[in-house]
Design a protein around this nucleic acid. Structure first.
Lengths: 206, 206
DNA sequence: GTCTATATTGAGATAGAC
DNA sequence: GTCTATCTCAATATAGAC
């Protein structure tokens, strides 16, 4: 109780603004989103948004950082001695759950990359590239040990990214084609099963 | 030579504008793109763009139609008697080539869907849904004939869409992670092989 | 910390000369 | 058909009262 309330209020308002910003950025992209619309959605005067984040660029970066933080949680532990079946199954399940739980985060990240990743090029060429490199080496050791079929591990990672994120990013198309209003736990479970089986089978892992 | 030159000029200019528009829409999205930037890129005064397309909405729709047209070419013929291996191999190869040749088209389409498909909801819920429905029925008949493993054909289609489009839409991320400047024929061939093998293997098709 | 009022720039769109 | 000049409105951002 020594600390002033201010910090709490700041934290609460920041999060509230970031949430509202996410909703708007998904709908209209970075350039297409107006600070006014974010303010309206957050139920605050526009000037407050500027007070908290100074400008649109900063706010957008805060949104992206928020997303990347979640992302890092998914990255399950693995090493040369791990069981590929277990690791890959978990990886697919976790990414699929993230797509289900936070489709908007996935969408903003996707749009950012589609547009050339102007705000996160550094993150990709540093953190992300290293992360992939490490996993590729481990997967290669699995292949060398005869634990799975010899494929390029990097493209295997891309395949898992692509298939799981697709259900978040393209949910409008998928739901429309499937003639459903939204996903439910059951459907997500079926999709997870499908992806896991296809990929494990594709790698000759029983 | 009876017809006035006008039609030709109109056609040429229209295409030129659509091209320039594509480049801009990829970079900044629909709302984020300005008519001025399109005009500058096309080397024409802004008023001309309005003369040809009346407004931004119309121009954007023209760009989308252009993209969907290309898309339809990929849809290979297939029926109950087709060989799944051949059809799927061709499908993957054609979609992968399209991703390679026209990544910007794929990206604009992706952004449109990510943002909720406000301009093409009808196309999706009509043409596209029907197209998927037909293919699903055919694939189901393959399964009933024992030609491939029993999976949900709809998700198989989504998987092929997701994996092939990923290389176009996320090329910035992929190239950065791979530490390459661009794809080449060879790399695309390797990816096509990888995807084809993974998917056919996943379906127990030899 | 909060909000109203406003400065300033850039947007989509069009009128009208050529 | 083409382009300059211009209208109108909405955008980001900030000043300054509370």
């Amino acid at each position: 109780m020594d600390k002033p309330k201010v910090g709490r209020i700041r934290e609460r308002n920041s999060q509230q603004i970031i949430q509202a910003a996410q909703e708007e950025f998904v709908l209209h992209g970075f350039k297409g989103t107006s600070m006014q619309s974010i303010a309206d959605r957050a139920g605050l005067p526009k000037a407050n948004i500027h007070y908290y984040f100074k400008n649109k660029e900063n706010l957008y970066n805060a949104v992206l950082e928020d997303i990347i933080e979640d992302w890092n949680v998914v990255l399950s532990d693995m090493d040369e001695n791990s069981d590929p079946k277990e690791v890959l199954t978990n990886f697919i399940r976790n990414k699929m759950q993230l797509s289900y739980k936070k489709p908007k985060a996935s969408k903003i990240f996707a749009m950012e990359i589609i547009q050339g990743a102007p705000h996160i090029k550094e993150y990709i060429s540093k953190e992300l590239r290293i992360w992939v490199k490490e996993r590729v080496q481990i997967m290669q050791s699995w292949i060398d040990q005869g634990k799975m079929r010899a494929v390029d591990p990097m493209h295997l990672i891309f395949m898992i990214w692509a298939t799981t994120q697709h259900y978040a990013d393209f949910n409008t198309q998928i739901l429309e084609v499937m003639n459903r209003r939204e996903y439910d736990d059951e459907e997500i479970e079926r999709i997870t099963e499908f992806l896991t089986t296809m990929i494990l089978n594709g790698l000759d892992i029983q």
